[in-house]
């Protein structure tokens, strides 16, 4: 279009309906564009990554070497999926075997603030060195600020072998 022609048009004030249509369109379009950007951005940032092949069990210990009744700290290699990185890392667990061959594997962090606790032989308790939380041999909180019992790994027993899986979130 030739702007010179435009300049000959009389400069009329916008009619109120026209003006309000313009304003409505501006707000509407900007809101729509904003939503079209904000919603995917929210999903992108807040949705967890699609499930990858995690939750595999790794063989962690020979059960015949674990004493009955006394927790044993075992270490094992497992695969960790950390964003775009897949790494093999050393992990540890406190394993308790009962007389009837039931096995529990506790995650090695105190449920209070994540310090590494240890087994205190004289008191027969798990004791956290940070804020003196104490847990019984079956993971229950005995004293201290810990808000919940010790976290457990899922376990599978195959013959004499103990396989450790991901954290048991249903416990």
């Amino acid at each position: 279009m030739d702007p010179e022609n435009l300049s000959h048009e009389p400069a009329v004030e916008l009619s109120p309906t026209r003006r309000s249509f313009y304003i409505k369109f501006i707000y509407g379009a900007m809101t729509a564009i904003g939503a079209a950007l904000a919603v995917p951005a929210g999903i992108y940032l807040l949705f967890p990554p699609k499930a990858r092949k995690e939750g595999d069990y790794v063989e962690a210990a020979d059960l015949s070497r674990i004493p009955v009744g006394t927790p044993e700290e075992i270490s094992f290699q497992r695969t960790r999926i950390d964003g775009w990185k897949v790494t093999s890392e050393k992990a540890t667990a406190w394993v308790v075997k009962t007389a009837d061959n039931q096995v529990t594997a506790f995650a090695p962090q105190c449920t209070h603030l994540g310090c590494a606790y240890h087994w205190d032989q004289p008191t027969n308790n798990f004791v956290c060195p940070c804020h003196t939380s104490a847990f019984s041999v079956d993971g229950k909180v005995l004293s201290g600020p810990a808000p919940r019992p010790l976290d457990k790994y899922m376990v599978k027993i195959q013959g004499n072998k103990l396989a450790i899986g991901p954290l048991d979130t249903h416990a």
Partner: peptide
């Protein structure tokens, strides 16, 4: 693009 929802779009 493969693991994150909406990542391909972004």
């Amino acid at each position: 693009v493969t693991e994150l929802t909406g990542g391909r779009l972004i």
